[in-house]
């Protein structure tokens, strides 16, 4: 704290900043997106809590438990598809550093194809379960199972739309500040969904299979 005893030389004091260039736009956007990722993490944490509470034997009522219907090997293929998608997206970002437009577009396309593969496998798995009569209406435990896995799938779906939008924007606009900022945010989003999938794979599919 200043006090009136402090001697301040009026000629040397700086009242207005001459050289302040304003905040860094991309860094601010990235920080803001980190904040979004934090809120998304809380969303998944709440869903995991619900899943945890609803995974006692009695939560499955008279319906099947995950041990009876999850297929960890099948979902392992999903895991690989999503991880490879993130890896390919990483290549796109490496190309971005070189300003290589076709590299970015190829990377996004690769991430898109692998992401679609992940989602197709997910839908196929859901269809297999529904055909066997294993639906969310059967029990609280199955409601939680579907909710957790399909909210993740919905995030992936939103990410795929975002990738398509970015493909169009990169092709159309090139590397403007907006586009680069969005590519960075999308990378965070995509990697975060992969991280969430790791938890889902371990706690829902592996743990469910073994319990």
């Amino acid at each position: 704290m200043s006090s009136s005893e402090t001697v301040v030389d009026p000629d040397k004091v700086r009242l207005w900043s001459e050289d302040y260039e304003g905040h860094d736009v991309i860094s601010t956007r990235t920080f803001g997106f980190w904040m979004y990722v934090l809120s998304d993490a809380m969303l998944f944490a709440t869903l995991f809590a619900a899943y945890g509470v609803l995974s006692y034997p009695h939560s499955y009522y008279t319906g099947p438990t995950p041990a009876q219907f999850v297929a960890p090997w099948y979902t392992f293929v999903q895991t690989m598809a999503l991880f490879l998608s993130v890896l390919v997206y990483g290549w796109a970002m490496a190309s971005l550093k070189d300003g290589n437009k076709s590299g970015v577009i190829n990377g996004l396309l690769g991430a898109l194809v692998l992401g679609i593969l992940f989602l197709a496998l997910d839908i196929h798995d859901v269809m297999r379960l529904v055909a066997a009569g294993i639906t969310p209406e059967v029990s609280g435990g199955l409601s939680a199972f579907y909710c957790l896995t399909q909210v993740h799938a919905a995030h992936i779906f939103a990410g795929l739309i975002w990738i398509i939008v970015m493909l169009w924007q990169v092709a159309r606009k090139g590397f403007t500040e907006d586009v680069v900022g969005r590519l960075i945010s999308l990378r965070m989003f995509w990697q975060f969904q992969a991280v969430m999938w790791v938890f889902i794979y371990v706690f829902v599919y592996l743990w469910g299979y073994m319990s």
Partner: peptide, 13 residues
């Protein structure tokens, strides 16, 4: 959607 998160019965809590 007819899920059973918070229902009385059907494994809801």
């Amino acid at each position: 959607l007819g899920t059973h998160f918070f229902t009385a019965g059907f494994g809801g809590n």
